[in-house]
Computed example of a mutant assay.
Amino acid sequence: MIVRIMGEGQVKLDDSHFAELNKLDDELLEEMEKGDEPGFRRTLEALLDAVHRLGAPVEDDFLEPSELILPERDATIEEVRAMLSDDGLFPVI
């Protein structure tokens, strides 16, 4: 799956990593529901770092659309909330 992190480019991510990423996604949702800004910030950072760690960078001249778009690192809780699906940021596979 091609994942775009806003402001950071695209990463090719194997579906086998979604279980690990969904754990962070669930934690992020919980922190958003509680209004835990420091926890939200920490978990969003960890989630985006994990996408980079688990994925492979896509070349700048790659011209296929992203299948999933993630917020930028400095996104607010409200901005992330607007991007959520029923499953959170990551689909349940």
Results as ranks from 00 to 15, higher is better:
residue 21 L to N: 05
residue 37 E to N: 06
residue 58 V to W: 10
residue 60 D to M: 08
residue 66 S to K: 14
residue 54 L to V: 00
residue 27 E to H: 03
residue 64 E to V: 13
residue 85 S to K: 09
residue 5 I to Q: 00
residue 17 H to I: 09
residue 83 M to R: 13
residue 36 D to W: 07
residue 17 H to Y: 12
residue 16 S to T: 14
residue 6 M to Q: 12
residue 91 P to W: 06
residue 73 R to M: 01
residue 79 E to D: 09
residue 63 L to S: 15
residue 45 E to D: 07
residue 66 S to P: 01
residue 62 F to P: 00
residue 82 A to E: 12
residue 61 D to L: 03
residue 26 D to S: 15
residue 47 L to N: 03
residue 63 L to V: 02
residue 23 K to Y: 08
residue 48 L to S: 01
residue 11 V to E: 05
residue 73 R to T: 08
residue 72 E to M: 01
residue 73 R to G: 09
residue 32 M to G: 03
residue 65 P to R: 14
residue 90 F to K: 03
residue 43 T to S: 01
residue 67 E to S: 12
residue 21 L to H: 06
residue 6 M to N: 08
residue 18 F to Q: 12
residue 1 M to W: 15
residue 88 G to F: 11
residue 5 I to G: 00
residue 90 F to C: 15
residue 28 L to G: 11
residue 34 K to T: 14
residue 77 I to L: 14
residue 75 A to D: 07
residue 39 G to P: 00
residue 8 E to I: 06
residue 71 P to G: 04
residue 35 G to A: 07
residue 42 R to C: 00
residue 91 P to Y: 11
residue 56 A to V: 02
residue 51 V to D: 01
residue 60 D to S: 05
residue 26 D to P: 05
residue 89 L to S: 07
residue 41 R to Y: 01
residue 3 V to G: 02
residue 69 I to G: 05
residue 59 E to D: 11
residue 6 M to A: 10
residue 59 E to M: 05
residue 93 I to V: 15
residue 58 V to M: 13
residue 72 E to D: 12
residue 81 R to Y: 08
residue 26 D to R: 15
residue 52 H to M: 02
residue 12 K to S: 15
residue 41 R to A: 05
residue 19 A to Q: 15
residue 37 E to M: 04
residue 28 L to W: 09
residue 69 I to M: 14
residue 65 P to K: 15
residue 3 V to P: 02
residue 22 N to L: 13
residue 76 T to Y: 06
residue 56 A to T: 09
residue 31 E to I: 00
residue 91 P to F: 12
residue 63 L to R: 13
